[in-house]
Design a binder for these strands. Sequence first.
DNA 1: CGCGGTGATGAAAACGTTTTCACGGGGAGA
DNA 2: TCTCCCCGTGAAAACGTTTTCATCACCGCG
Lengths: 357, 357
Amino acid sequence: MTVTIRDVARLAGVSVATVSRVLNASAPVRDETRTRVLQVAKELRFAPNSAARSLSRQRAGALGVILPDLYGEFFSELLRGIDQEAQRAHHSLLVSSSHHDSRGIGAAVRAMRGRVDGLMVMAPDVSGPSLAEVLPHGVPTVLLNGPEVDADVYEITVDNFGGARDMTRHLIAVGHERIAFIAGAERNHEASERERGYLAALHEAGRGAEPSLNVRGDFTEDGGWRGAIALLALADRPSAIFAANDAMAVGALSALREAGLSVPDDVAVVGFDDIPIARFLNPPLTSVRVGIAALGERAASVLLAALAERSPPGRPPRRAVFPAELVIRDSCGATAGPPRHPARRRARSERALSNPS
Amino acid sequence: MTVTIRDVARLAGVSVATVSRVLNASAPVRDETRTRVLQVAKELRFAPNSAARSLSRQRAGALGVILPDLYGEFFSELLRGIDQEAQRAHHSLLVSSSHHDSRGIGAAVRAMRGRVDGLMVMAPDVSGPSLAEVLPHGVPTVLLNGPEVDADVYEITVDNFGGARDMTRHLIAVGHERIAFIAGAERNHEASERERGYLAALHEAGRGAEPSLNVRGDFTEDGGWRGAIALLALADRPSAIFAANDAMAVGALSALREAGLSVPDDVAVVGFDDIPIARFLNPPLTSVRVGIAALGERAASVLLAALAERSPPGRPPRRAVFPAELVIRDSCGATAGPPRHPARRRARSERALSNPS
DNA sequence: CGCGGTGATGAAAACGTTTTCACGGGGAGA
DNA sequence: TCTCCCCGTGAAAACGTTTTCATCACCGCG
């Protein structure tokens, strides 16, 4: 049915070994033989079976990606970065999402056994110990934005704490008195880090954290919308809303608009992540730039590097922290009024403040 | 190094065949033997090598997805739908993106040979014939939103033409005189279908298509932004802008805001795709709902069904067209003014007009 | 009491590659 | 002229599963 290397060998009048050598350029072959083999291979539209190849070399030429979700611009950006780097190194990508608990992650990990050479796991909802339990032995692994884990893995994290703290500092500096926070999902590592940053900035400014201004969200637009509605219902309305990610900021903007409030004049709104769409929102969203695609690229490149050096297994894993820097746009009220000259305005409002942490 | 089925067999004191039978429940095994094997397997954290398994069964348990790009909410939604359906059927997903030409697609297809049982290919930038050339033989394939192709494949398409025509009709019905269009990328099948729909509606209304009102975009926010800027520079400004996808509509909204124009009062803006964020924009974006995730789910389910019936190869492939229906929100000016009661307003403005085509 | 069936198992043959090993045949150097 | 080495090639052994085929014991039935 399907054409194998044997068919090519037979028709070219050589052994399968020779065909393999030609196709992989793994050993010298007489010129005339080579062209004949290539000719036959092309005629037959031969493509080697990757499963067989993976088995024979002990190497799949693919990377696995395990994500908690696939909803929204964040994950597509991340995946885009990963894919870009993987493709550069001629590796395929195995993607599996909607894994929120360690059981699901474990299942995904096991399903990937033998199909991938390395793993990138994003599991902000799972605790360190239970994650360590399901991670594979002997497969190089990069953990993304997760808790610290006691296992032989690489960890790449965004400075969630620092970013959130800087953003809150900025809001304070601009003069906001009542700064509300729409937090992320419960038991989510990123969510709690960002919340911690928010609280730390309030604390260092000598302000108490008012519980009613800290509402729980879930990282979705709808969650942000509901959070904003709840905040607007307060007797003493906040003057600024810090959403723990951009998706929720989008929802909050929408809620404020529906309530007939102006942003930033009545209420300031800021987010976190700086997803690509943030600068195109109305008003353009002040956010914390994460460099999502770059993060993905970096994760893939770390993994590929680990793969290249034939994995000395005892090597101590490294934990890298990606900086998170403020991007000031209009939604926080820190820039000038409505623009006259779009091009210039864009340039000015796009200026990024470097993260002092 | 890694633990194989042999290790399990040895430690459990049985043959590899028995271990396999236990793990796959593929044949009766004495109860005591079974528990012993399972015990050992768990102790050793044994996970079967998928490559070997794929090779032995002639079946990989995975689906391939080939995409032109991974930027923006559209693709993450599509992928989300695909992944959901694939996971339901216990299949993994192999993803490869940034394939705009047939050469790249061909390479991706070949790389997937043996790793996947079926293929989903989205290739709006490639012509039918050159696509047919690189598609694999003997691997069930679903083509997404592409041109009609002369090959043994399934095709699932959105009613790009009908959706764009209906949207244009709607704008005409609402009273817009000068309706501009920001088209998609050149030589892109979806782009040209949507443009065709726009032109058809103008034509049937007895209006000529004014070339200056039809500018080229590229399906990105920036493209939409530039397109809108170009349209605003016209001596006789359009009263409505129809962007060929939502990302460009977002860019257009941003440009209009920067120009100090109000949407929809000064200019109406509408999009296509109804990405999840569309309803949260400011103003909420009137668009053509595509049901992106559902489209992905459907593609995966068609593929899985084809796989299940052991592929009778001569069967005539089917072409299915997904409906595209208008979603009227505020950005086209067809709804009432600023709301007082967010909840009710949301419900009303979300009403979808069913597609009469 | 013999016989067919079935339940539980193991040995071994696939699956399609890559890679090791072996083997000629030539040169080059002694 | 002899030896050594390298080039080009083929046979065969991996790689880790699943699955077929055989074997054996046992049970129920005639």
